Computed example of a mutant assay.
Amino acid sequence: MSKKILAINSGSSSIKFKLYLMPEEKVLISGAVDNLGASDSQFSYKTDKASETRQLPIKDHSEGIQQIIEILETSGVVKDRSEIYGVGHRISHGGNYYTHAVEVTPEVEKRIDELKVLSPLHNPNGLIGIKAFEKFLPDAKETVTFDNSFHHTIPKKAYMYALPYEFYEKYHIRRYGFHAPSHQYVSEKARELFGPEQTKRMITCHLGNGASISAILDGKSVNSSMGFTPLAGVVMGTRCGDIDPEIIPFLEEELHIDSHEMRRIMNEDSGLKGLSGVSNDEREVEKAAKNGNERAQLALDVFVHSIQQYIGAYTTDLEGLDTLVFTAGIGEHSAFIRSEICKRLGYLGVKIDEAKNKENALSIEAPDSKVKVAVIPTNEEIIIARDVMKVTQAQ
């Protein structure tokens, strides 16, 4: 019997949503609430029959969710809220507690709240979303898809940090990896499109305001650039990525700031934004660089270089490379960034067709490239919806 499943993907200042008819995986309505907390917040949605974009003040995630539920009813995709069988939420950090999607329980909510110190930009807002749906859709089954669950197959040699072992035993300090639904979706899609042999050794690049690189061997994650928290790895929109850990106490002492302020600086004021002084939006930084802004150009150079380093390292983990995948906002739409990254990967057999690259084609490799290079739009929401079905049917 078909069921209506709502997938909720809460970011730090946005909420993406899709209502599916499952298991057919038919999208009934999709949309987003962007720029939450601002006077010009944007609410947009699309159905088979209509689409609309509105600008209105939406102060927080709870208000944004109320707008989403109202549009489900007024658009006609549901006649009554009770038609929504389940709601799936993407939560950034599940720590060492969860290796797969789970039903929402008071204990799960407690764990999500406990782990907010490790994902300060996302876990709190995800929990707000869960509680809001408990209020607005009390009869719907709620599940959680964790942003690190796909990476539970990473081997111990890759996820351990060289700290005293008791820190791992007592505090579960290790590499977790994030953007799991995205890396899972595009790696599965690549295997479906190109076959298991062409995608045996694959590197997936999720490049957006948040960015991460994953090594996928035979469909399983064996390494990922984000670490104990989503702050680690490559340079991002506002996050610094990998830095020498001694920088942290040095700046705290020099600036007379505490760890909370230092954490805020690394999460909110760094990355492309901090280096360029222009914006966290790669498009704005690229535009400034083309107009001669040297700091903007430097920010792009550092961003690209950090990605190239991880691709090189993960090719070693995989003992070669068959397919390179780009996804997410920058990965799917910035021909410039893809071209810059691939320029230094010729030694791996990567060669792209610039005409196809500019068209954002599915396959952008040149005919004589030894590596398949793909641009695959991510779909984290379908992974969330599938997880709702798996969890609720297993009960």
Results as ranks from 00 to 15, higher is better:
127 L>N: 12
282 E>R: 06
342 C>S: 10
321 L>W: 09
8 I>L: 14
156 K>T: 13
315 T>H: 02
35 N>G: 08
14 S>K: 11
120 P>F: 06
272 L>H: 07
102 V>Q: 08
376 I>P: 11
56 L>V: 09
329 G>I: 07
90 R>A: 02
149 S>G: 05
233 G>M: 12
94 G>P: 07
59 K>E: 15
322 D>V: 06
248 I>K: 00
272 L>Q: 05
349 G>Q: 08
276 S>F: 05
301 D>G: 09
252 E>N: 13
374 A>D: 08
210 G>L: 09
394 A>P: 07
91 I>G: 09
195 G>T: 09
285 V>A: 08
204 T>I: 05
304 V>H: 11
281 D>M: 13
135 K>I: 02
53 T>N: 11
108 V>S: 00
43 F>E: 00
240 C>H: 00
12 S>M: 08
219 G>Y: 03
316 T>Y: 12
369 S>N: 06
29 I>P: 03
168 Y>W: 12
189 K>H: 06
98 Y>C: 03
351 K>D: 13
350 V>G: 05
273 K>M: 14
227 G>S: 12
235 V>M: 14
11 G>F: 03
371 V>M: 04
303 F>P: 02
106 P>I: 05
75 S>I: 01
184 Q>R: 15
85 Y>Q: 05
106 P>S: 04
257 I>G: 04
350 V>R: 01
111 R>C: 00
375 V>A: 11
294 E>C: 05
259 S>L: 10
224 S>E: 15
227 G>L: 03
213 I>P: 10
115 L>D: 05
327 T>H: 03
238 T>K: 06
119 S>D: 15
235 V>E: 01
94 G>W: 04
333 H>N: 15
194 F>A: 12
167 F>E: 10
114 E>P: 01
13 S>D: 08
372 K>L: 11
57 P>Q: 04
354 E>A: 04
23 P>I: 08
84 I>W: 00
281 D>N: 15
360 N>K: 07
231 L>Q: 14
217 L>F: 10
367 P>E: 13
235 V>Q: 04
216 I>G: 02
111 R>I: 15
120 P>I: 03
32 A>N: 12
297 Q>W: 01
17 F>A: 06
131 K>N: 15
25 E>V: 10
102 V>H: 01
379 N>M: 07
183 H>P: 00
103 E>Y: 01
381 E>F: 00
359 E>V: 06
358 K>Q: 12
339 S>H: 12
355 A>E: 14
203 I>C: 05
66 Q>G: 05
319 E>W: 02
72 L>D: 07
174 R>A: 08
203 I>V: 15
38 A>D: 10
136 F>E: 13
320 G>F: 07
148 N>Q: 14
37 G>E: 03
54 R>L: 15
349 G>R: 04
253 E>T: 07
180 A>D: 03
74 T>F: 00
149 S>K: 02
306 S>D: 07
62 S>E: 14
66 Q>H: 11
304 V>N: 11
58 I>V: 15
338 R>M: 14
56 L>K: 15
94 G>E: 09
37 G>W: 00
226 M>D: 00
33 V>N: 02
330 I>V: 11
205 C>D: 09
287 K>M: 04
162 A>D: 14
273 K>D: 06
137 L>P: 11
60 D>L: 01
